[in-house]
Protein backbone atom coordinates (compact mmCIF):
# COMPACT_ATOMS: atom_id res chain seq x y z
CA UNK A 1 0.00 0.00 0.00
CA UNK A 2 1.30 3.44 -0.95
CA UNK A 3 0.87 6.61 1.09
CA UNK A 4 -1.00 8.26 -1.77
CA UNK A 5 -1.91 6.81 -5.14
CA UNK A 6 -4.10 7.42 -8.15
CA UNK A 7 -5.16 4.60 -10.41
CA UNK A 8 -6.15 5.26 -14.06
CA UNK A 9 -7.40 8.72 -13.09
CA UNK A 10 -9.50 10.21 -15.91
CA UNK A 11 -11.46 13.44 -16.33
CA UNK A 12 -13.51 14.27 -19.42
CA UNK A 13 -15.14 17.65 -20.01
CA UNK A 14 -17.67 16.64 -22.65
CA UNK A 15 -15.52 15.29 -25.50
CA UNK A 16 -12.26 16.75 -24.20
CA UNK A 17 -10.25 14.34 -22.09
CA UNK A 18 -8.24 16.62 -19.82
CA UNK A 19 -6.70 13.87 -17.69
CA UNK A 20 -6.29 10.48 -19.29
CA UNK A 21 -5.44 7.33 -17.34
CA UNK A 22 -2.93 8.93 -15.01
CA UNK A 23 -1.51 6.45 -12.50
CA UNK A 24 1.12 7.47 -9.96
CA UNK A 25 1.96 6.99 -6.33
CA UNK A 26 3.72 9.05 -3.69
CA UNK A 27 5.49 7.67 -0.62
CA UNK A 28 5.38 9.29 2.79
CA UNK A 29 7.99 12.04 3.21
CA UNK A 30 8.58 12.44 -0.51
CA UNK A 31 8.54 15.60 -2.60
CA UNK A 32 6.88 14.57 -5.85
CA UNK A 33 6.96 16.81 -8.90
CA UNK A 34 4.16 17.05 -11.47
CA UNK A 35 5.27 18.85 -14.61
CA UNK A 36 4.05 19.40 -18.15
CA UNK A 37 3.49 22.21 -20.66
CA UNK A 38 0.66 24.73 -20.22
CA UNK A 39 -2.76 23.12 -20.50
CA UNK A 40 -1.42 19.60 -19.99
CA UNK A 41 -3.78 18.87 -17.09
CA UNK A 42 -1.63 19.40 -13.98
CA UNK A 43 -4.05 21.67 -12.15
CA UNK A 44 -6.94 19.43 -13.23
CA UNK A 45 -5.22 16.54 -11.41
CA UNK A 46 -5.12 18.72 -8.29
CA UNK A 47 -8.77 19.65 -8.78
CA UNK A 48 -9.66 15.96 -8.97
CA UNK A 49 -7.68 15.08 -5.84
CA UNK A 50 -9.33 17.89 -3.87
CA UNK A 51 -12.77 17.14 -5.36
CA UNK A 52 -13.39 20.49 -7.03
CA UNK A 53 -14.30 18.39 -10.08
CA UNK A 54 -16.02 15.01 -9.94
CA UNK A 55 -13.86 12.17 -11.28
CA UNK A 56 -14.97 10.61 -14.58
CA UNK A 57 -13.24 7.30 -13.86
CA UNK A 58 -10.36 5.90 -11.85
CA UNK A 59 -9.62 5.95 -8.14
CA UNK A 60 -7.68 8.02 -5.64
CA UNK A 61 -6.46 6.38 -2.43
CA UNK A 62 -4.92 8.23 0.49
CA UNK A 63 -3.43 6.29 3.39
CA UNK A 64 -5.37 3.21 2.29
CA UNK A 65 -8.70 5.01 2.10
CA UNK A 66 -10.58 5.54 -1.14
CA UNK A 67 -11.22 9.28 -1.58
CA UNK A 68 -13.61 9.16 -4.55
CA UNK A 69 -16.82 11.03 -3.91
CA UNK A 70 -15.72 12.81 -0.73
CA UNK A 71 -16.57 16.54 -0.81
CA UNK A 72 -13.71 19.06 -0.72
CA UNK A 73 -14.08 19.94 2.95
CA UNK A 74 -13.84 16.27 3.92
CA UNK A 75 -10.75 15.81 1.75
CA UNK A 76 -9.28 18.61 3.86
CA UNK A 77 -10.31 16.88 7.11
CA UNK A 78 -8.67 13.66 5.85
CA UNK A 79 -5.39 15.56 5.76
CA UNK A 80 -4.86 16.85 2.23
CA UNK A 81 -4.09 20.56 1.94
CA UNK A 82 -3.66 22.64 -1.16
CA UNK A 83 -2.64 26.05 -2.47
CA UNK A 84 -3.99 27.65 -5.62
CA UNK A 85 -2.00 28.88 -8.61
CA UNK A 86 -4.22 31.95 -8.69
CA UNK A 87 -4.19 32.82 -5.01
CA UNK A 88 -7.50 33.01 -3.20
CA UNK A 89 -7.01 35.20 -0.13
CA UNK A 90 -10.00 36.06 2.05
CA UNK A 91 -9.40 39.66 1.05
CA UNK A 92 -11.35 41.45 3.77
CA UNK A 93 -9.72 39.57 6.65
CA UNK A 94 -6.27 40.04 8.17
CA UNK A 95 -3.47 37.52 7.64
CA UNK A 96 -4.03 36.09 11.12
CA UNK A 97 -7.79 35.76 10.58
CA UNK A 98 -7.19 34.01 7.25
CA UNK A 99 -4.97 31.42 8.88
CA UNK A 100 -7.22 31.11 11.95
CA UNK A 101 -10.18 30.30 9.72
CA UNK A 102 -8.15 27.34 8.45
CA UNK A 103 -7.13 26.31 11.95
CA UNK A 104 -10.82 25.99 12.86
CA UNK A 105 -10.72 22.90 10.64
CA UNK A 106 -9.24 20.97 13.59
CA UNK A 107 -10.62 22.85 16.60
CA UNK A 108 -13.60 24.99 17.48
CA UNK A 109 -11.75 26.76 20.29
CA UNK A 110 -10.77 30.32 19.33
CA UNK A 111 -7.71 30.43 21.60
CA UNK A 112 -6.38 27.14 20.22
CA UNK A 113 -7.01 28.28 16.64
CA UNK A 114 -5.13 31.51 17.30
CA UNK A 115 -2.21 29.63 18.83
CA UNK A 116 -2.04 27.23 15.88
CA UNK A 117 -2.25 30.14 13.41
CA UNK A 118 0.55 32.04 15.15
CA UNK A 119 2.71 28.93 15.21
CA UNK A 120 2.19 28.33 11.48
CA UNK A 121 2.81 31.99 10.62
CA UNK A 122 6.05 31.86 12.57
CA UNK A 123 7.00 28.69 10.68
CA UNK A 124 6.39 30.56 7.42
CA UNK A 125 8.27 33.62 8.73
CA UNK A 126 5.25 35.89 8.41
CA UNK A 127 4.90 36.79 12.09
CA UNK A 128 5.56 40.47 11.38
CA UNK A 129 2.60 40.69 9.02
CA UNK A 130 -0.17 39.06 11.04
CA UNK A 131 -2.30 42.20 11.31
CA UNK A 132 -2.03 43.24 7.66
CA UNK A 133 -5.27 43.02 5.67
CA UNK A 134 -4.89 40.19 3.15
CA UNK A 135 -5.76 42.42 0.21
CA UNK A 136 -2.75 44.66 0.93
CA UNK A 137 -0.13 41.89 0.62
CA UNK A 138 2.41 41.60 -2.19
CA UNK A 139 2.10 38.57 -4.47
CA UNK A 140 5.01 36.87 -2.66
CA UNK A 141 3.33 37.28 0.71
CA UNK A 142 -0.04 36.20 -0.67
CA UNK A 143 1.50 32.94 -1.87
CA UNK A 144 3.20 32.49 1.48
CA UNK A 145 -0.11 33.10 3.25
CA UNK A 146 -1.74 30.44 1.05
CA UNK A 147 0.89 28.00 2.26
CA UNK A 148 0.37 29.09 5.88
CA UNK A 149 -3.37 28.64 5.49
CA UNK A 150 -2.92 25.15 4.07
CA UNK A 151 -0.51 24.26 6.90
CA UNK A 152 -2.98 25.44 9.53
CA UNK A 153 -5.33 22.58 8.55
CA UNK A 154 -2.53 20.19 9.69
CA UNK A 155 -2.19 18.34 6.37
CA UNK A 156 -0.29 15.07 5.92
CA UNK A 157 -0.13 15.69 2.17
CA UNK A 158 0.21 19.15 0.67
CA UNK A 159 -0.48 20.01 -2.97
CA UNK A 160 1.44 23.11 -4.09
CA UNK A 161 0.20 24.63 -7.36
CA UNK A 162 2.85 26.95 -8.86
CA UNK A 163 3.73 28.67 -5.62
CA UNK A 164 6.85 30.16 -7.22
CA UNK A 165 5.32 31.71 -10.34
CA UNK A 166 5.74 35.49 -10.44
CA UNK A 167 8.23 35.62 -7.57
CA UNK A 168 11.65 37.30 -7.59
CA UNK A 169 14.74 35.01 -7.55
CA UNK A 170 15.29 35.81 -3.86
CA UNK A 171 11.67 34.96 -3.01
CA UNK A 172 12.03 31.73 -4.99
CA UNK A 173 15.10 30.76 -2.98
CA UNK A 174 13.21 31.48 0.24
CA UNK A 175 10.30 29.42 -1.08
CA UNK A 176 12.56 26.43 -1.75
CA UNK A 177 13.84 26.70 1.82
CA UNK A 178 10.28 26.78 3.14
CA UNK A 179 9.27 23.69 1.14
CA UNK A 180 12.31 21.79 2.48
CA UNK A 181 11.39 22.88 5.99
CA UNK A 182 7.85 21.55 5.52
CA UNK A 183 9.15 18.20 4.35
CA UNK A 184 11.46 18.04 7.37
CA UNK A 185 8.40 18.70 9.53
CA UNK A 186 6.94 15.47 8.15
CA UNK A 187 4.66 16.70 5.37
CA UNK A 188 4.56 14.86 2.06
CA UNK A 189 4.40 17.25 -0.89
CA UNK A 190 3.20 17.10 -4.48
CA UNK A 191 4.36 20.15 -6.39
CA UNK A 192 3.32 21.57 -9.74
CA UNK A 193 5.87 24.04 -11.02
CA UNK A 194 7.17 25.52 -14.25
CA UNK A 195 10.42 26.87 -12.88
CA UNK A 196 12.80 24.04 -13.69
CA UNK A 197 15.62 24.74 -11.25
CA UNK A 198 13.08 24.66 -8.42
CA UNK A 199 11.68 21.30 -9.54
CA UNK A 200 15.12 19.82 -10.20
CA UNK A 201 16.42 20.94 -6.81
CA UNK A 202 13.51 19.81 -4.72
CA UNK A 203 11.91 16.72 -6.14
CA UNK A 204 12.74 13.11 -5.39
CA UNK A 205 10.71 11.85 -8.34
CA UNK A 206 8.86 13.53 -11.19
CA UNK A 207 5.89 12.71 -13.40
CA UNK A 208 5.60 14.58 -16.68
CA UNK A 209 2.24 14.74 -18.46
CA UNK A 210 1.11 16.22 -21.76
CA UNK A 211 -2.44 16.35 -23.16
CA UNK A 212 -3.51 14.65 -19.94
CA UNK A 213 -1.33 11.59 -20.50
CA UNK A 214 1.88 10.44 -18.87
CA UNK A 215 4.91 10.94 -21.13
CA UNK A 216 7.75 10.34 -18.69
CA UNK A 217 8.54 9.54 -15.07
CA UNK A 218 11.63 9.06 -12.95
CA UNK A 219 14.29 11.03 -11.11
CA UNK A 220 14.82 14.69 -12.07
CA UNK A 221 17.90 13.81 -14.14
CA UNK A 222 16.10 11.03 -16.02
CA UNK A 223 13.11 13.20 -16.84
CA UNK A 224 15.24 16.18 -17.89
CA UNK A 225 17.03 14.03 -20.48
CA UNK A 226 13.93 12.23 -21.71
CA UNK A 227 13.33 12.80 -25.43
CA UNK A 228 9.53 12.97 -25.03
CA UNK A 229 9.83 15.67 -22.38
CA UNK A 230 12.20 17.78 -24.46
CA UNK A 231 9.87 17.49 -27.44
CA UNK A 232 6.81 18.38 -25.37
CA UNK A 233 8.44 21.54 -24.07
CA UNK A 234 10.50 22.63 -27.06
CA UNK A 235 8.91 20.87 -30.06
CA UNK A 236 10.42 18.42 -32.54
CA UNK A 237 13.37 19.26 -34.72
Amino acid sequence: MHFFETHRLTKAFGGLIAVNNVTFHVEEGEIYGLIGPNGSGKTTVFNLITAYYPITSGTIRFRGKEMNGLPTWKVCKEGIGRTFQIVKPLARMTVLENVMTSAFCRTSNTAEAREKALEVLQFCEMEKKIDFPAKGLTIGDRKRMEIARALATSPKLLLLDETMAGLTPQEQADGVQLIRKMRNAGITIIIVEHIMHVIMNLCDRILCINYGQEIARGTPAEVANNQNVIEAYLGKE
Partner: peptide, 8 residues
Protein backbone atom coordinates in the same frame (compact mmCIF):
# COMPACT_ATOMS: atom_id res chain seq x y z
CA UNK B 1 -13.17 27.72 -3.25
CA UNK B 2 -10.61 28.73 -0.66
CA UNK B 3 -13.11 28.10 2.15
CA UNK B 4 -13.74 24.54 1.02
CA UNK B 5 -10.07 23.53 1.07
CA UNK B 6 -9.84 25.07 4.55
CA UNK B 7 -12.21 22.36 5.73
CA UNK B 8 -15.41 24.39 5.59
Amino acid sequence: DAAMIMGI
